[in-house]
Design a protein around this nucleic acid. Structure first.
Lengths: 139, 139
DNA sequence: ATCCTAACTTGGACTTTGTCTAAGTCAACA
DNA sequence: TGTTGACTTAGACAAAGTCCAAGTTAGGAT
């Protein structure tokens, strides 16, 4: 994570305590938090941090490619600190839990030119859906 | 579409004018509308239809598997009437346009058991991202 | 054909998620 | 250590969606 802070400083970021706390929260958690969850955890370390700053900082991290935004349901977006490691997501239809997964092969290879309609296709996000072991056992 | 209305009636649906209008709107459009867009088009045919009813009806159609809910960005969900024909989506990062596409092969085959973490995986949604021809030409 | 009633619809209040703004604060350079 | 523009703040605002009590109605029963 010091890597991250250094990298950001190199890009002209002003390193405020608020930004440091947001970065630390994302680094400490290996789950996919919503903006409000990030805010709640940030408040534990820096009580006066505002919601707006958390939103701003998350937006900046996404813009810099350090964090991924994941919209798996129509609800709140989730933030994935694992941006430098290509992966996809497996979502539980019961409880909404998300796991990072690594499918085989290149998903773009499955889309023939005839199915691209002139688009310049640059990436693919895959969301696998299913039930986690806990939810499968209590229907 | 009469098929759809018949099918729904067979499942015990009360066939109200509001539901009929929502179903007709979805059938008439081959794009992916938001709930508010469905409401706007429904109002043209049935001025007194309420937003709540449109949301209720869309939710019921999704629950019955007649319509798919697509959340490609963090914004409003979109509704895809093409639920009985397996397909994925290609989204323009510039203007948000969505096209249905048909990749080759079975996406589930790319996820080995070791990457399923005990989940019962039932499906996969793929969102290809890129620029449509129009957006590619005006950066 | 008319009645009855559970199912459906309505408008509006409410919630959640996210954005914007004006005024105040502060990190980092000189 | 001073300066300044970038950053943060609280709160108003907006968009998308849910919920509820009261009113309406489709369709089976009579």
């Amino acid at each position: 994570m010091n890597d991250l802070l250094e990298r950001l400083r190199g890009r002209g970021w002003r390193l405020t305590s608020q930004r440091r706390v947001v970065a630390e929260v994302l680094d400490g958690e290996h789950v996919h938090l919503t903006a409000d969850e990030v805010h709640a955890r940030a408040v534990e370390r820096l009580p006066e941090i505002s919601r707006a700053t958390v939103y701003n900082t998350l937006g900046e991290l996404v813009g810099l490619g350090e964090v991924l935004e994941v919209a798996t349901d129509g609800r709140a977006k989730r933030y994935d600190p694992n941006a430098h490691h290509a992966h996809q997501h497996l979502v539980c239809s019961g409880c909404g839990a998300i796991r990072d997964v690594h499918p085989l092969g290149d998903p773009l290879a499955a889309l023939p030119a005839a199915e691209r309609f002139g688009f310049t296709v640059s990436g693919a996000e895959i969301t696998y859906r299913g039930l986690c072991p806990d939810c499968a056992n209590r229907p």
